[in-house]
Design a protein around this nucleic acid. Structure first.
Lengths: 231, 231
DNA sequence: CACCCCACCTTACGTTGTAAGGCCAGACCT
DNA sequence: AGGTCTGGCCTTACAACGTAAGGTGGGGTG
């Protein structure tokens, strides 16, 4: 009877969850107050009862996404632990490719992030890091705790689609203008096993950079602890 | 005579330069077509003669900023060379704190960036890097060639101002909830020589991360060259 | 003198976020 | 039962945005 007129009552969680689904499906540009309201079978102004405004909506959206990173690693070694943690975060970001771009443009740090970093610092200190080195490590990690690296060469994930365009049209001209880059691409494409992955496997790159940082930090950690023993 | 009515004719360069100055002064939000036109003593639609639209304007703005990175290092050692290069880029980004955020949200790579990266790859290959390792290095650098690291903890540079707020109000509660983070802050603040710099000197952090990456890559380079000799 | 076209302007439309206030069903009190 | 309150949603309205369409005027060229 009431099937036509009945409507699931709104809630902050429902608004934010719907917003995430909307952005997943149609991109960040599609997230307007009116569009989101329509998605919920409601008028735009009704959202303001649960969200202070557009800015707070966006904050809530990234908080919702970050809350998906719940994986608590079972690894004992600090390197393996953080590695597993950051890779889990990366899986979340792959589900929401727009999230990194949104996160970096937000000027308020969403709630829960501090607790997240507190656990990371705890892991480092427990492993023998000084607070000073832990601080450095946090900075060095950059956005990797959130599961993404600054991929300047493929910002297409932020919204639009990457078109190959007339890439092969003037390949000769490109080779002349950019000799090193074209040589590199040629070398890397050659050994590519799976062409569907493209010549640029981000997963491998992500792990390489991550290990580079972890190994480098481990070296500092060992050096500092042996210092304190020797000196 | 014509001082009242005379007006410097528009040009793409003048439009973009004025846009950069406007964003420097009033933030990215202030960059609207009408506002920029007013800044040039002109109507909004006149800009479309020199810029296809808002998106192309933004692309042009970051291109203009990136063009400021012209410093060609005189260092012979690849590490010192790239270090000097990236630190010079950082100076540019410090002049335009909004640029990193804008760059990462753009979905088209601005012209000139490829040439820039081509030179970096050339530097690496000349230093004995394989194309494979050079590729890895490019990814590992992330946004550092552009002079900035992903600073998740201070996205305030993107627009708003960071207010200390009631940070000291419930410090005890924070210490309980975030024991590791508060301990780290306490330790780091203790040795701070210049309190005006804050306890978190980004310059030092930037260089630390940069050296971490450069040293790590150097290790890979040496390992690969000794491999090719030994094997 | 007629013409044209470059560079700029006028007008107008659709869309955005959101301020201000209305409306109505159910809860609650008397 | 009737009056009042109020939480939850809607209506209306406005300023600002990007930009499509077309006008205009003056200097250069035929």
């Amino acid at each position: 009877m009431t099937a036509k007129t009945f409507r699931e009552p709104l809630s902050r969680e429902r608004v934010l969850a719907t917003a995430v689904r909307l952005v997943d499906a149609e991109g960040i540009k599609a997230l307007t107050m009116r569009r989101l309201a329509a998605e919920l079978g409601v008028e735009a102004m009704s959202l303001y009862f649960y969200v202070a405004g557009k800015e707070e909506l966006l904050d809530g959206v990234i908080s919702t996404v970050l809350d998906e990173i719940v994986k608590t690693s079972d690894q004992a070694d600090w390197r393996a632990h953080l590695r597993q943690q950051f890779l889990a975060a990366r899986q979340v970001m792959l589900r929401h490719p727009w999230a990194p771009g949104l996160l970096t443009t937000r000027r308020t740090i969403p709630g829960g992030v501090y607790a997240y970093f507190d656990r990371i610092v705890g892991t480092l200190v427990d492993a023998g890091f000084s607070y000073h080195l832990a601080h450095r490590a946090i900075h060095a990690f950059g956005s990797m705790p959130f599961g993404f690296a600054q991929e300047v060469f493929s910002p297409a994930a932020a919204g639009g689609s990457l078109e190959p365009d007339d890439a092969e049209a003037d390949l000769a001209a490109m080779a002349a203008a950019l000799p090193n880059l074209t040589a590199m691409v040629a070398h890397e494409m050659h050994g590519a096993a799976d062409p569907t992955l493209g010549w640029c496997d981000s997963q491998v790159e992500f792990e390489f950079t991550l290990d580079l940082l972890l190994d480098g930090l481990e070296r500092y950690r060992v050096a500092s602890t042996s210092d304190s023993i020797a000196g």
